[in-house]
Design a protein around this nucleic acid. Structure first.
Lengths: 126, 126
DNA sequence: CAGAATCCAGAAGGATACTG
DNA sequence: CAGTATCCTTCTGGATTCTG
């Protein structure tokens, strides 16, 4: 149904932490992106998000679940299998997220220039 | 040119801190809203944002200025006068902000219901 | 496999008081 | 008027190690 997530999915794109907006916590928007094409297992998500520790990723996922944006399904068996997927509400949030990303793509240079011009050359928030 | 900002501008609307997205820091989006109809003085902004301490508000404004979203103009004289206004870049960001707000307005109930259903009745992040 | 437990550092936000 | 300066608490995210 959906192809495997590329490990470098966020290697280039990842200045997202420099953007002047955030959806959920630091990793939430990236998770939503990963789920766009269908449900994913925990370990699948960990591939492009390998720089996120398991504790933090679980917390992000729980927060998304709490807000009704993501669903969590456990398939018992050995090995265990847990799938995360977008709820209709979660999918609906891709719309404002896309709007924000479009803005970022369009104004990325202006943003960098502004920080450059301000003095300190745009310290990333990490 | 623009009417005074209502002191209660964010009294009702202020569950904004419960939303699953943020533009800039905690107060940035509210500041952008205040500047929508034209430049405002520091003390004008402090009226609807009276619950923000001066230090924090100044830091928010500086961050917005650094990102080129807001301009700061000083008019010397006694008493001093400092005006903040949206730059074209700042105004352009009202678009994704509006998209996010529209989403929130449309799905606010679902969000609350999801938190309610999750267990703990939606602890506000403050 | 899908996490939980513990410990820790830095950032964000706030209270209060003071100033050019 | 438009901020600064200090001090302090909380929140976030991360490193590391361990488990049903």
């Amino acid at each position: 149904m959906s192809e495997p997530l590329r490990p470098d999915m966020f290697d280039e794109l990842c200045p997202s932490s420099m953007l002047p907006f955030r959806f959920g916590d630091k990793w939430a928007a990236l998770i939503l992106r990963c789920l766009e094409e269908g449900p994913r297992r925990y370990s699948e998500l960990r591939v492009p998000l390998r720089r996120v520790t398991p504790k933090v990723m679980t917390r992000s996922l729980r927060a998304l679940e709490r807000d009704g944006l993501v669903s969590r399904t456990v398939y018992e068996g050995l090995p265990r299998r847990v799938e995360y997927g977008l709820t209709p509400l979660g999918r609906s949030m891709l719309e404002p997220l896309d709007a924000a990303c479009a803005w970022a793509a369009e104004h990325w240079e202006e943003l960098l220039d502004a920080r450059e011009a301000y003095g300190n050359g745009g310290t990333p928030r990490q």
